[in-house]
Design a protein around this nucleic acid. Structure first.
Length: 489
RNA sequence: GAGCCAUUAGCUCAGUCGGUAGAGCACCUGACUUUUAAUCAGGGUGUCGUUGGUUCGAGUCCAACAUGGCUCACCA
């Protein structure tokens, strides 16, 4: 990647660049008056046939034939063939064309026609060099398959692998569709800080940074939750944010250190209201973006049409693990059952954590069709409201599709005394070595003490939603520039 | 953080038992005025990821390191 030790091909391209300049041709043009995209010429061929057009794009294929030649130009919309014949363009332009390389970006003016083989093309009358390419493109037939190169040089991936471009176009449509859905429901989009004095709102390790002028440590946010709930305290009734979260944890096919979440909060609603909103929203997005609510993910057919299955967590465990935690009341009993089932848990694990462990181990992988799992133990839900009837559980749900969590939601805990106690329990776990336990957030408690109305909240991992809707096996396939170690060479 | 696998030309990949480094595309020279993975004739362009070790001799065997992928751990 360095400038030293250029390959033969790179040296030759630099020589070609110099020669263009010697001929008075600027190889990096300022602009080009393009009249049509490649796609427009194909779509509007009947009207454009015989008309003069100007197209521009990257040379992706080139077939010279002495005094004539063909090339395919690629722009964002697609590809268009150009036909260059000395009789039409003259010796100089033909020479420019013949010396052009794959990857060069050129402009071609000419008339639209159809070749003998029936391909819509542009018969060139003039050719302009717009940008000389100094590096050879990957191979035209196999493309770029080396995943390391694809992620590090995503621009190359986008040039030679058209389906990659589609994933990111779809990603944009998904986010746009989500915004449209929420705005139509009266939600207000807001932006809250990325730099937090303490990192709260989720169980995760944060990235730490430092502000020099204030001489204070700051954390990159791990969730959007707490500032958004402060806005509900402040009188906003429906807010959402689509923003980047940062978690200083492992990288996997499902995890990137920075990822995008949508969180929304609705005053006077509970988790049941949010459940309906969630299934409606996901179905709406699929219908609007893909034109169907039935999607295929890695060979599994998934029907996103509401209503989705509702499954209380304990019932799920009873069904798939054969253990009824309603009959198990103590931490010690729960640990014994975990040992009997071969589930590794920490020595001092609470019943609630073990229930969550059972769920993740035995139930999650079975939840292929969209499923709302409800009733999480209070120990693993420090920001969720307790269930009125069974206070050791919360009014919470997580949505699972193809065995993966897509959404997390609950009736927000708005009792400031209870919230303080939960934070203190988390702080104790933190003191005992749980790096991901929530710290006490006095500023948030202060807001709650002024009164948070009953509120339903929701978080959806945008990257995972995009994975589902684009049938992408890895989160790196839906993030343009996934986090990578730098290469030394 | 752990285990397994991979790393050879610009790209996609072969490389046998340890004995002078190979193919296709791309590229270079030439031919060709409707081709489309254009064709024809000729040309191999390389720090075999890095550093050590074993050996008369290492792309090949061994070790460490680097980067990536997958699985696990952690998590969304």
């Amino acid at each position: 990647m360095s400038q030293d030790n250029l390959s033969e091909q790179m040296l030759i391209r630099r020589e070609k660049l110099d020669k263009l300049r010697q001929q008075g041709i600027e190889p990096y043009a300022d602009r080009y008056a393009r009249t049509h995209s490649a796609e427009e010429i194909h779509l509007e061929f009947e009207e454009l046939n015989g008309q003069e057009v100007a197209v521009a794009g990257r040379i992706m294929a080139k077939r010279g034939q002495g005094k004539a030649g063909f090339a395919h130009l690629q722009d964002f919309s697609g590809q268009i063939q150009v036909y260059v014949k000395v009789d039409n363009v003259g010796e100089a332009a033909l020479d420019l064309f013949n010396r052009a390389d794959l990857g060069d970006i050129i402009g071609v003016k000419g008339t639209v026609f159809k070749t003998q083989k029936g391909e819509v093309s542009v018969r060139a009358t003039s050719i302009s060099m717009l940008s000389k390419s100094l590096r050879p493109l990957p191979e035209k037939w196999h493309g770029l398959t080396n995943v390391e190169l694809r992620y590090r040089q995503r621009y190359l991936d986008l040039i030679v692998n058209p389906e990659v471009r589609n994933v990111f176009v779809t990603r944009s449509k998904i986010v746009r569709s989500m915004r449209g859905f929420l705005e139509a429901k009266g939600f207000l989009e807001v932006e809250t800080p990325t730099l937090h004095p303490i990192a709260g709102g989720a169980a995760a390790k944060p990235f730490q940074t430092h502000h020099n002028a204030l001489d204070m440590d700051l954390f990159l946010r791990i969730a959007l939750e707490l500032p958004l709930k402060k806005l509900i305290v402040g009188g906003f009734e429906k807010v959402f944010e689509i923003g980047r979260n940062f978690r200083n944890e492992g990288i996997s096919v499902k995890h990137n250190p920075e990822f995008t979440m949508m969180e929304l909060y609705q005053a006077f609603a509970d988790y049941n209201d949010i459940m309906e909103l969630t299934e409606q929203m996901v179905a709406h997005i699929a219908q609007e973006v893909l034109g169907t609510m039935v999607v295929e993910y890695q060979g599994e057919q998934v029907d996103l049409a509401p209503p989705w299955r509702r499954l209380p967590m304990l019932e799920g465990i009873k069904e798939y693990a054969g253990v009824d935690f309603a009959q198990i009341t103590s931490d010690q009993e729960a640990r014994n059952v975990a040992a009997a089932k071969g589930l590794a848990v920490e020595q001092d694990a609470s019943r609630g954590k073990i229930i969550n462990g059972f769920f993740e181990e035995f139930v999650e992988p079975h939840l292929i069709q969209p499923t709302f799992v409800t009733g999480h133990p209070v120990e693993v839900s420090p920001l969720a409201k307790r269930n009125r009837i069974k206070p050791e559980y919360t009014d919470r749900f997580e949505a699972f599709i193809v065995g993966r969590e897509l959404a997390n939601a609950f009736s927000e805990l708005n009792d400031p005394i209870d919230q303080r106690e939960r934070f203190e329990a988390q702080a104790a776990a933190r003191a005992a070595g749980d790096e991901e336990a929530h710290p006490v957030d006095e500023d948030f408690l202060n807001a709650l003490e002024f009164g948070l109305p009953p509120t339903g909240g929701l978080g959806i991992g945008i990257d995972r939603l995009v994975m589902l809707l684009t049938d992408s096996p890895s989160i790196r396939d839906v993030i343009l520039f996934p986090t990578m170690r730098p290469r030394e060479d």
